[in-house]
């Protein structure tokens, strides 16, 4: 068994620090997802509009968020708000803003796709049964849309958790940063710690993301 330097994890509060860092990453993802889902549904409904101006504006927003690397967005929000607006926001808040903007764009596109994918005959059949448009949405369209959406939006959570590894660049000490701190503080006593500590971080991401991913898969099978 090669020396992976796993002993550094049990020095002092190191394990608790790593778990604390993981919680920071998960917390920021969950808050962002919680805000993104309703905002994204709203955006998705707006995106199905036939108004060319609304279509163009939402399209530009979606493409802008998708094309820009998340790191650039984080820097713009974290440092840009201070230099341009004089508002000093914390790294955590900047992360939530960026992840929410990103999540809203992704959710919006998913919702738009789900709404469009409901065949026209569903609307027509509902009308034939003398349902009002609001009844059509409530009893026919929305239940079918939600079924298609839930697995996809759960996947968005795992993507967000993984992307939180970037927020260390704006001073938020999350699990990866804690890992780097532990490796550095012990680089003389345990020069091999990097592998073991990164392996532990990998397992932590896996333990958090795998059940979420499995849940999405099950729901997809059940409702798909």
């Amino acid at each position: 068994m090669p020396d992976l330097g796993l002993d550094v994890l049990f020095k002092g509060k190191n394990m608790i620090r790593l778990l604390g860092g993981l919680w920071v990453a998960v917390k920021i993802s969950l808050i962002s997802v919680a805000i993104s889902i309703p905002l994204g549904i709203l955006l998705g409904i707006i995106m199905t509009s036939k108004n060319p101006i609304i279509k163009a504006v939402t399209r530009v927003y979606l493409e802008f968020i998708r094309i820009m690397p998340q790191l650039v967005l984080l820097f713009i929000v974290f440092f840009g708000t201070t230099s341009a607006l004089g508002v000093n926001i914390s790294g955590e808040l900047a992360s939530v803003i960026v992840f929410t903007a990103w999540g809203t764009a992704e959710m919006g596109d998913l919702v738009r796709g789900a709404l469009i994918s409901i065949p026209k005959h569903q609307y027509e059949s509902a009308a034939a049964l003398t349902l009002t448009p609001s009844q059509t949405y409530l009893y026919v369209i929305i239940p079918q849309t939600v079924r298609r959406l839930i697995p996809l939006s759960i996947n968005l959570i795992t993507r967000m958790i993984k992307t939180t590894s970037l927020i260390l660049m704006i001073g938020v000490v999350e699990v990866l940063k804690v890992a780097q701190q532990i490796i550095e503080a012990n680089r003389m006593s345990s020069p091999n710690a990097a592998f073991g500590v990164y392996l532990t971080v990998l397992l932590m991401y896996f333990i958090i993301c795998w059940p979420i991913s499995m849940l999405a898969k099950r729901l997809e099978k059940k409702w798909g």
Binding site: I31, I35, N88, I89, S90, G91, E92, L93
Partner: peptide, 14 residues
């Protein structure tokens, strides 16, 4: 949701 993380941020001086 948005305000919650700001309270425990390290650098919230105005």
């Amino acid at each position: 949701g948005g305000n919650a993380p700001a309270t425990d941020g390290a650098d919230t001086s105005d």
